[in-house]
């Protein structure tokens, strides 16, 4: 492999988890830096400048929110949070504080790798600062230059807010977006608590875009967190 693979910083206190992640990630060719505490992790992040940070929420010295805050003071490196199920609240706060995505334990390797790919892709896009004008996913085609949306060959007519919601999701494709982030971006900062707007518009979008709105293929709900446009750059 001529090309140098991306560097991943793993901040996790449990050795077994580190072992599992090391094997999984190294098998995929990623380079890995490990840290067992938040402080050590922050130091490694500053010195090694990783491409992605995997951050466990249950660290003994600092909580995930603090670590995210400190990292975001100086870097836009994608942060993927790893959390247990009962940490919903912390998860949302960390995402709102600038983390890019999350994984709930237990997760499988496929999920993990997909999240890393998405994160890396977004980081790359941010650097070039240019999205593709046409977004395609399954039979959905969104032409952002012309502001037109197609399902298969059929054009679908969206309201301005529906369209804005869809394009926001596309911009974060593959990543989770919290309710607050979505509401802020689509409706504005005054509407961050009006979750019901999202419910209504997401339902409308699904009915317009999904074949079976009760079994959505890409407009996914992440209960208690937000929404995700299911998208895997390589899958």
């Amino acid at each position: 492999m001529a090309e140098e693979k991306e560097l991943i910083l793993l901040i996790e206190d449990e050795p077994q988890m580190r072992r599992f992640l090391r094997i999984t990630l190294e098998s995929q060719g990623y380079r890995l830096v490990e840290a067992a505490t938040a402080r050590e992790g922050l130091m490694q992040a500053a010195t090694r400048n990783p491409d992605v940070v995997l951050l466990d929420l249950g660290l003994p010295d600092l909580d995930g929110l603090e670590v995210t805050g400190k990292l975001r003071e100086w870097t836009q490196t994608p942060i993927i949070v790893i959390s247990a199920r009962e940490q919903e609240h912390d998860k949302v706060r960390t995402l709102d504080a600038g983390a890019d995505d999350y994984l709930t334990k237990p997760f499988n390797a496929g999920e993990l790798l997909a999240r890393i790919r998405v994160a890396l892709r977004h980081a790359a896009l941010r650097n070039t600062d240019a999205g593709e004008p046409v977004f395609t996913l399954h039979n959905l085609r969104v032409d952002m230059g012309e502001r037109r949306v197609f399902v298969g060959d059929e054009e679908v007519h969206l309201t301005p807010l529906e369209y804005k919601l869809l394009t926001t999701l596309i911009r974060h494709a593959g990543k989770v977006i919290t309710h607050r982030q979505l509401l802020r971006e689509v409706w504005g900062p005054a509407y961050v608590d009006e979750v019901q707007y999202l419910r209504v518009y997401m339902t409308q979008l699904r009915h317009k875009l999904e074949a079976d709105p009760t079994r959505p293929r890409f407009l996914m709900n992440e209960p208690g967190i937000g929404y995700r446009l299911k998208y895997d750059p390589e899958g």
Binding site: P213, T214, M220
Partner: peptide, 29 residues
């Protein structure tokens, strides 16, 4: 764990406006 947390009152009911269809979608997924 859920049961023990429910019983001990550690879980608070965090009500938000929800669409039933959406939740069913999550479950089916």
């Amino acid at each position: 764990l859920d049961m023990s947390r429910l019983e001990s009152g550690a879980i608070t009911v965090n009500k938000e406006w929800q669409s039933l269809e959406e939740i069913v979608g999550v479950v089916l997924n």
